[in-house]
């Protein structure tokens, strides 16, 4: 075993340190990327996604982890926009259903006032109105729930974008320069020395 250790100790010095702090860069990139896409329509977002996909594919980058993260984040933002655009539609539909229920109620009240004997109240008389109001509630609840879905999608997109830039960070010139400059032969020697205590004691 001593021979093996000796061979290792005789090996070449090397190793490195450090990494630039990519946290801030990652956060800024994620915010910018997300904000830039939040002010466009879903259709425009999907157009950007397919353009981005084609650009990455051209240079063979669409399968690399960082670029794949960006594409997936872009897709999630498009999904979020799809839900975002649906919210006013749900609210409008809820308003339409509620208005329709009110219209039916008004018709019944008018007819009842005109002919209190002929137009009678009975269980299930306002079944349609109740159904309309129930549908309206569903529409509003769906719109409300979509708010959470959007927040989740955006948060996941944000996480992926941060991951992407952190991965890009390790290819960055600053990162490479720091790693190459910081050869720490002393540290490596010390790391090797840590095992020396485990060698059998010479009798």
């Amino acid at each position: 075993m001593r021979l093996i250790l000796a061979a290792i100790f005789a090996g070449l010095a090397s190793a490195a340190v450090a990494e630039p702090d990519v946290e801030q860069v990652a956060a800024a990139f994620a915010n910018e990327f997300r904000a830039g896409n939040l002010f466009v329509s879903e259709a425009e977002c999907r157009a950007r996604l397919s353009q981005r996909h084609a650009t990455f594919a051209q240079v063979g980058g669409d399968k690399l982890a960082p670029t794949a993260f960006v594409l997936e984040a872009n897709r999630l933002i498009c999904e979020a926009l799809m839900h975002q655009e649906a919210i006013p539609l749900h609210r409008a539909e809820a308003a339409r259903l509620t208005a329709e229920a009110q219209r039916l109620d008004q018709i019944w009240r008018r007819d009842r006032a005109a002919d209190p004997v002929g137009v009678v109240d009975f269980p299930g008389r306002d079944a349609s109105q109740q159904q309309l109001r129930s549908d309206a509630r569903w529409q509003l609840e769906t719109a409300y729930a979509k708010g959470f879905i959007i927040a989740d999608l955006q948060a996941e997109a944000d996480r992926l974008l941060r991951l992407a830039i952190e991965d890009f960070g390790r290819f960055g010139p600053q990162s490479k320069r720091t790693m190459l400059m910081a050869a720490d032969a002393d540290g490596e020697k010390s790391l090797q020395e840590g095992f020396r205590d485990l060698l059998p004691r010479a009798s």
């Binding site: 490195a16 340190v17 540290g187 490596e188 790391l191």
Partner: peptide, 19 residues
């Protein structure tokens, strides 16, 4: 590995090698 490389470098190295 702290004597040889920073935790961030270790993490990047582990990501690379696990890929």
């Amino acid at each position: 590995l702290a004597e040889v490389m920073s935790p961030a470098t270790t993490r990047n190295l582990l990501i690379l090698l696990s890929e």
